[in-house]
């Protein structure tokens, strides 16, 4: 089991967290201007990189979403940053 770092609560067991999404996706809007392909990409396409990755996670026990940079190969957790920009 991995150890993730919540920017508010510190290192905690992986089971306390819930995956949100890949970081950096912007919701395309307004709906009337969004092409079907762009909307489909927003809904379904993920980069799913091997190695360094930036993701949004939820720390369920404190309820805060945050940005986590980690490595999907080495499992290193590089850093966690709150959505308001404070690094852990």
């Amino acid at each position: 089991m991995q150890l993730f770092t919540c920017p508010f609560c510190g290192p905690r067991a992986e089971t306390e967290f819930f995956y949100g999404a890949e970081a950096g996706k912007t919701r395309p809007e307004p709906a009337s201007d969004v092409k079907a392909e762009a909307w489909a990409a927003y809904l379904h396409t993920n980069a799913n990189p091997k190695g360094a990755t930036r993701e949004i996670w939820l720390h369920q026990t404190c309820g805060e979403f945050f940005l986590m940079e980690r490595d999907t190969v080495t499992h290193d957790v590089v850093q966690s940053v709150s959505l308001r920009g404070d690094a852990a």
Partner: peptide, 13 residues
């Protein structure tokens, strides 16, 4: 969960 997600990610929490 989505209420919280959008609260934190779109609105002023």
């Amino acid at each position: 969960m989505p209420l919280e997600e959008w609260r934190q990610d779109r609105f002023n929490p």
